[in-house]
Computed example of a mutant assay.
Amino acid sequence: MFRGAVRLALVAVVAGLLLVPGAARACACGAAYVPEGHTVEAGEEIAFLSWAEEGERERLEMLLGITTETPDLAILVPTPTTPTVTQGDPERFDELARLATPPPKKDWSLGGEDGAGAPPGAAPDVISRTVLEDVVATVIEGGDAGGVAGWLRTNGYATKPELEPIIADYLAEGWRFTAVKMRGDKPFDGYADPIVLTFDTSSLVYPMRLSSAAENLGEVTVFTLDRTFRMPRASWVSGAQPAAAVELVEDGVHDDVLDNLVEQGQNRLTKWALSVDDPATLTNDLELAREPGIEETFTPAATEAARDAQRNLSPWVAVLSGALGLVVGAGAVLLLRRRRSSAVG
């Protein structure tokens, strides 16, 4: 499904539309950065949220489909605290999609330091710079909205002034920003290999406020893996139902990261397909909150042995069904001939 992913780049979270008008195509996470005069088309976005340290540190991995004719591509990612940036694995999303598919029924019939108070136009501090193959990820904190916008312009990012109030809100809450930029020399077309942002937080969160200036948004798929059910909470979410809720077992998980989480007891996998009718309603971020009262709704995942047995049994079921059909058909023909013979006699 995602094995055609191209080089490492911008998975991450909220691109923020900090671009020159017309330079970006909005998606559920925000937008991708390209220079004025170029076009970019964002496609499917998929996020995987789990705990690196339960209740203390979140692990956020994302996969983004995008097409543009320029290699000059970038994204801005807000997080509540300073993140560590590492490489992700596109095949992990194949595994999540497979695991979130319910097995067949037996009857065959989902605080940090405050950066506010800086003088107007104050530039942010650069906390870290991480180079991952074709991607450079720079983490910044502090300053004010004007200073952040100035830093972005100085470092080759085109900014959009109407997003500065939202940047100011994030800064007032002590959030950091990660500027992820391509450093390759080829146009981008396909799925970007994901990166992982790991950061301190007391609740699983998916930043989305910077998408509020988008004209329209696509659908975003969010996977969560935890000890119990987690429900998406935000003022713009209502009546959401999980696309899948599966209880995983170690026998059947083919990914080291997922297998390690399941071994720790984080085996409740949910899948959410979320869409936003009006981006202006994105006044708060998406929080994935515990809902232990409906834990019993999880479907037990089939073990690998059970899946193998099903695959091995399926051909025999087909053969036996065919043979039974032949027997029934032959019996019907024989009965019909007997009736005709009786009628003649």
Rank of each mutant, 00 (worst) to 15 (best):
E164N: 04
E91N: 10
V13A: 01
P207A: 02
E250I: 15
V205L: 11
D107F: 15
L336M: 11
S203K: 12
A240P: 00
A28N: 05
R98H: 04
R337K: 13
G345Y: 06
P292F: 00
D94N: 05
G322D: 12
E69K: 01
T270Y: 09
P102C: 09
A47C: 14
A330K: 04
D114K: 12
P292L: 03
L18T: 10
A52V: 03
C29A: 15
G88Y: 06
V77Q: 02
E296S: 15
L217D: 05
L110F: 09
D169K: 02
W236D: 09
A305Q: 02
E113N: 12
H38M: 05
V344E: 14
A213M: 10
R153K: 06
T228D: 15
E215S: 12
E53H: 09
G43A: 04
S238V: 03
A234D: 03
C29W: 13
V135W: 09
W316I: 13
T178S: 08
A5V: 02
A323N: 10
Y157L: 08
L320V: 15
P119Q: 14
G121E: 06
G265S: 11
G115Y: 09
T68H: 04
L17K: 07
E219I: 14
A305I: 03
G55W: 03
L204T: 04
L204V: 05
R3F: 10
L225H: 04
R57I: 09
M62G: 08
Q241E: 13
V13R: 00
V222C: 00
A302M: 11
G22M: 05
A28S: 11
I167N: 01
D200I: 05
I140F: 08
V205M: 11
V40A: 12
G184P: 08
P194R: 12
S314M: 15
P119R: 14
G65A: 09
N284R: 07
R3M: 07
A100L: 03
V180K: 07
V222S: 00
V344K: 05
D94I: 01
E54I: 04
G22Y: 01
L73H: 14
T130I: 03
T221P: 06
V135C: 11
V20C: 06
L10F: 14
P232I: 07
A12Y: 14
T159H: 01
L60Q: 06
A309R: 07
V85M: 05
A306L: 10
V253K: 00
S128Q: 00
R233E: 14
T86G: 11
G174C: 13
V249P: 05
W236V: 02
G325N: 14
S342R: 14
A9N: 13
R7W: 12
L197C: 06
T67K: 03
V136K: 02
L313F: 05
I66T: 07
G190L: 09
C29E: 15
P300C: 12
G22E: 02
S341P: 01
L204A: 07
T84A: 12
A280S: 09
E36R: 15
V180C: 13
P207Q: 01
I140D: 03
L274E: 04
G55L: 06
R25V: 07
